[in-house]
């Protein structure tokens, strides 16, 4: 299905927002203003964007430690996200979660996750809830090439088939689990693994927004119609190291320069969309300016925001109710 001009502009805006957000987080971290660790999504924007465009209100996703892009693609506000990463009281999670735990259940974002392989069981549950309550919603599990070697992924592929759950497993294979290559760590073939469970599975070019979106649309449609789970093995690339502070010496400078020049999903999207005459370069340029202004304000507000007050909130939000000492 051909994406409309509005769809293409919206997709570009989302990808551009993710890229700009990550470059600002990187700058804040370099300046020492980020208290903890962050894992930047830059380079993988087409995946979160292409998949989440196929979702509708009520659908849910589980994310990973590299979760900022998924949050933005699900419509979370970048202001509170930036404040969260800076450890501020105005953050998405009041400064209690940080980069690895940004969540907004109202928007179907069940959380970034600090545990590799934490998400697959959770989406089985979210999908079971949708099925039991008859909401028609689907649930997407974003995970990386690292997570495919966790038992939770194998168990969840099986359980989702056994229970015929409306789940889409999106394996974002950026080639590296921390500092160890997928080439070394992943035996066999991820698509074939899924097919071993009888699950429909395809390999997708994660640098192409339209290919990602088309594959996601098909899998989401199947899940929504009661056809059960699917797996997308999406080949993608990250621009930064594993975490902010990873000097990333395991990839050569020449390789990284070539990557940024030739394998940038946003540049590819620009070229595709403008050369085909679907959108004008000026439209994309004006989105760039709007996104930059949005992030200018997000960073300014996050820097200015107060830190959480331990006297008020250190021991709140542990339980809904608790008749005992904390």
């Amino acid at each position: 299905m051909q994406l409309s001009r509005d769809d293409l502009l919206a997709a570009y805006r989302t990808m551009r927002t993710i890229r700009e957000f990550e470059s600002r987080v990187h700058a804040e971290a370099q300046a020492g203003r980020v208290p903890g660790s962050t894992h930047l999504y830059a380079g993988q924007e087409a995946v979160a964007t292409g998949v989440c465009m196929a979702l509708r209100e009520g659908d849910t996703i589980a994310s990973t430690h590299r979760g900022h892009g998924h949050c933005i693609a699900m419509g979370l506000d970048v202001g509170p996200m930036m404040a969260e990463i800076l450890g501020k009281a105005t953050g998405t999670c009041k400064g209690k979660g940080g980069s690895m735990h940004i969540a907004d259940l109202e928007k179907g974002m069940l959380g970034a996750n600090g545990i590799v392989g934490g998400g697959p069981p959770l989406v089985c549950g979210a999908a079971l809830a949708a099925k039991t309550l008859g909401t028609g919603a689907v649930s997407v599990c974003f995970s990386g090439d690292g997570a495919v070697n966790q038992g939770t992924t194998a168990e969840s592929l099986n359980l989702s088939m056994v229970w015929t759950l409306p789940v889409i497993f999106v394996v974002e294979d950026n080639g590296w689990g921390e500092a160890t290559s997928a080439e070394f760590a992943v035996a066999g073939d991820i698509v074939e693994r899924a097919r071993g469970y009888g699950m429909p599975a395809v390999r997708v070019d994660g640098l192409s927004l339209t290919e990602v979106h088309e594959a996601a649309r098909e899998a989401v449609g199947r899940a929504r119609e009661g056809g059960g789970p699917s797996l997308l093995h999406v080949k993608t690339e990250r621009f930064f190291g594993h975490f902010n502070g990873d000097v990333d010496t395991y990839r050569s400078e020449a390789w990284k320069a070539e990557q940024r020049a030739n394998r940038d999903c946003i540049l590819r999207f620009r070229a595709m969309a403008t050369e085909a005459g679907l959108v004008a370069a000026e439209d994309l340029d004006s989105i760039d300016r709007e996104v930059a202004a949005l992030l200018d304000e997000a960073v300014r507000a996050a820097r200015a925001a107060p830190e959480p007050d331990p006297a008020r909130v250190l021991t709140t939000d542990v339980y809904v109710s608790y008749e005992g000492r904390l």
């Binding site: 849910t60 589980a62 259940l105 069940l110 934490g118 697959p120 069981p121 959770l122 989406v123 089985c124 549950g125 979210a126 999908a127 079971l128 809830a129 949708a130 039991t132 309550l133 649930s139 038992g151 939770t152 168990e155 969840s156 099986n158 359980l159």
Partner: peptide
């Protein structure tokens, strides 16, 4: 157990 205990957590988040 990992899959179904985690599924309980996810289902609980979403209203079951």
């Amino acid at each position: 157990e990992s899959a179904f205990v985690g599924a309980a957590a996810g289902a609980a988040l979403m209203g079951l």
